[in-house]
């Protein structure tokens, strides 16, 4: 498969997933549901999102500090974040830790080549294991990359992680399935995702 077709698949995939005007929808929701709080403008929402991706300042009133940066009130900022949480745009709000620094150095990506008609079933099984923190299906890229199911396992000890993978392989009778384990040996970069357009925020 050529690289070009990889990318056009990617493009198609993303277009299918895209939700245009999500922020505008949220804007209307805020206006509908909380009549006493003026909604943020689209531009303010964009900048707020970028600021939240960079992280709260470590001051006693962080939301007030952020509100001042976008010429809004603290109440508006808090209402907007609540709405994003309810909408599912924000899936988690809190400390983003660097797991390697916390001792989670045995970070393994386990990749499996599961028959297409079994992939959901096996994914559910693997996801039920407490040590699996992420489980995604991704496309195969034949002949270079035959794997379509990805699990992340974060552990403090490599031998323990290897034993955990062996145990789940046995438990779900996956011994005959082609798989590979990719331990990380170096984190070149680890930071929160930033979706904001360049130039929205200073720094």
């Amino acid at each position: 498969m050529s690289q070009l077709s990889h990318k056009s698949q990617l493009s198609h995939k993303i277009q299918c997933q895209e939700e245009p005007n999500l922020m505008a929808k949220t804007l209307h929701k805020v206006a509908d549901e909380t009549l006493d709080i003026a909604p943020l403008s689209l531009k303010q929402q964009q900048v707020l999102r970028a600021l939240l991706e960079c992280g709260l300042p470590h001051v006693a009133q962080p939301y007030l500090a952020i509100a001042k940066q976008i010429a809004a009130t603290q109440t508006q900022v808090l209402a907007q974040i609540s709405h994003w949480q309810e909408d599912g745009l924000v899936k988690r709000f809190g400390l983003v830790v660097k797991h390697r620094k916390l001792g989670f150095k045995a970070n393994a990506m386990v990749v499996w080549n599961i028959a297409d008609d079994r992939v959901s079933e096996v994914a559910e099984q693997l996801s039920s294991c407490a040590e699996v923190s992420l489980c995604y299906r991704r496309p195969r890229r034949l002949p270079d990359w035959p794997y379509n199911l990805f699990c992340m396992i974060h552990g403090t000890d490599r031998a323990v992680v290897i034993a955990q993978i062996a145990a789940m392989t046995k438990k779900f009778s996956l011994e005959d399935i082609q798989k590979d384990t990719l331990f990380s040996f170096k984190a070149y970069k680890q930071q929160g995702a930033r979706y904001g357009k360049k130039g929205d925020v200073n720094g």
């Binding site: 991706e53 599912g88 995702a193 979706y195």
Partner: peptide, 18 residues
């Protein structure tokens, strides 16, 4: 100590961009 990346929002990838 470098243990904290930030305190902030983790956005839903599908909804928040590509």
């Amino acid at each position: 100590a470098g243990m904290l990346s930030r305190i902030g929002a983790v956005f839903n990838h599908k909804k928040a961009g590509s």
